[in-house]
């Protein structure tokens, strides 16, 4: 039986710690991905991956990406809540990979709210 080592993982840790050392780690915003049963069934895992990938591609590391349970909006999953600075949260629905990348490029980077996939403004 072949057991692989955790060396590669250790490298990830070292790289991540090195990159955040000496830098202000305060986040300017956060993106919440609904990962309840309904979200997972609708493909929220791909949404999460696309958000992280696009943020990294755009060199944005001051926006946290976190997961939550069901937001109570099962009919429009996958759902994503975006909050930048002191602005009120914005909830988007039917966020597939393509829409996730749009959210990063338009909302996070330019502050434009995407009305075609907007579900709700304000806290749930």
């Amino acid at each position: 039986m072949k057991i692989k080592s955790l060396e590669e993982l250790q490298k990830i840790k070292e790289k991540a710690l090195k990159e955040i050392s000496g830098r202000d780690t305060k986040k300017r915003g956060r993106i919440v991905v609904g990962m309840g049963t309904c979200g997972i069934s609708a493909g929220a895992k791909d949404t999460l991956r696309a958000l992280a990938d696009e943020l990294e591609k755009q060199s944005i590391d001051d926006v946290a990406v976190v997961q939550s349970g069901c937001m109570g909006l099962c009919e429009v999953e996958p759902t994503v809540e975006v909050q930048i600075g002191d602005e009120e949260p914005v909830i988007y629905g039917h966020v597939d990979e393509e829409q996730a990348r749009r959210i990063v490029k338009e909302h996070v980077m330019k502050g434009h709210i995407l009305s075609d996939i907007l579900v709700k403004r304000g806290k749930i």
């Binding site: 039986m1 072949k2 057991i3 692989k4 955790l6 993982l9 250790q10 990830i12 840790k13 790289k15 991540a16 710690l17 990159e19 955040i20 780690t25 986040k27 956060r30 999460l48 991956r49 958000l51 992280a52 990938d53 943020l55 990294e56 944005i60 590391d61 926006v63 946290a64 990406v65 976190v66």
Partner: peptide, 22 residues
């Protein structure tokens, strides 16, 4: 087989897009 333990990631910011991607 492979084994993973998240202890190896203690202290890492798991909300960082870069870390999530990695």
């Amino acid at each position: 087989c492979y084994d993973f333990s998240s202890k190896a990631l203690d202290g890492v910011d798991l909300s960082s897009p870069k870390v999530i991607k990695m």
